[in-house]
Design a protein around this nucleic acid. Structure first.
Lengths: 154, 154
DNA sequence: GCAAAGCTAGATTTTAGAATATAGATTTAT
DNA sequence: ATAAATCTATATTCTAAAATCTAGCTTTGC
């Protein structure tokens, strides 16, 4: 690997590099809190072979957004999850009519699509943490204009 | 007024008829809680000449929705307010480019449009409690599909 | 006329949920 | 090899926001 490759790897913000203890320090919360956010469906860290969590720079930014929603805007975790559930995943993913008819994420708005168990063909083979629906839904940025842009492009 | 007129008035769900004490009983909360929801921007009851609150059947249903969000889905008031702020009011009201450029509700997603003070010409003369943006945004029903329908029609 | 209900404003209490701690096992890194 | 960090799962603590209460005044309705 040459110098350019190394630079690329270092600048890849989606590369999972931080152990949970480091991530907790960076975000300013306890490791337990990070696990709680994961249980609630707000964040999906990568895992090592032995199931240890690894967070990317993007994950850190996502977590900082979650903190903004909690500390500055007074949301609780259920509210953040509810906001994240507003994303029109079927439009973003280009689901067919058949996909929509059979997909729980299309029907329900009680949880974000990445928490829905029965996925349709458009999603079942994709890792949710790499999906644009998950990646782009960071509620501390202007969610309303995010939704607007996505509906406009359809 | 004839019998038909009387029937019409009785069946008008937007007619403000319940004093705050009655409304609180119907919803199952204290009068103080209803005043709190109003302060938070979740409900806009009509007022009598002497500033007493009057709630319609629609208001009762709206309040029941708020209770569902709190009790069943675990939202707090900030979260409900945040969800209500997602409505694309400028599309629903058909705001011009100029309206959008000057309207705080278009720019911000921190509060629902009916809480924004500086209103654009499309709204400044309308009573918010009679506006479709306010009326149709009841977060306990499927907010996601509500947003979808509104974007689709634009 | 007066009791009941409503008004605003502010203080107080309660409680759910956010955060922390504990325990026992496993993995990592020096 | 072993100390530090992480894992899951459960129990406990703490706090902020939801709800209630108080006070003084006004309106309503019998």
């Amino acid at each position: 690997m040459n110098v350019i490759d190394i630079k690329k790897r270092l600048s890849d913000k989606t590369r999972p590099v931080f152990a949970i203890g480091v991530a907790a320090d960076l975000v300013g919360v306890s490791v337990h809190t990070l696990r709680m956010y994961e249980t609630e469906g707000l964040i999906i860290p990568q895992r090592t072979k032995s199931k240890r969590r690894l967070y990317s720079q993007k994950d850190i930014e996502r977590l900082q957004c979650i903190r903004v929603m909690i500390e500055d805007r007074g949301f609780n975790l259920a509210g953040i999850k509810g906001m994240m559930s507003m994303a029109p995943c079927w439009e973003i993913k280009g689901c067919s009519e058949e996909d929509r008819a059979t997909c729980d994420a299309y029907k329900s708005s009680l949880e974000p699509c990445w928490m829905v168990k029965s996925k349709t063909s458009a999603c079942q083979d994709e890792t949710c943490s790499e999906c644009p629906v998950y990646r782009d839904v960071t509620t501390c940025h202007n969610m309303k204009s995010y939704l607007q842009e996505h509906w406009k492009n359809t």
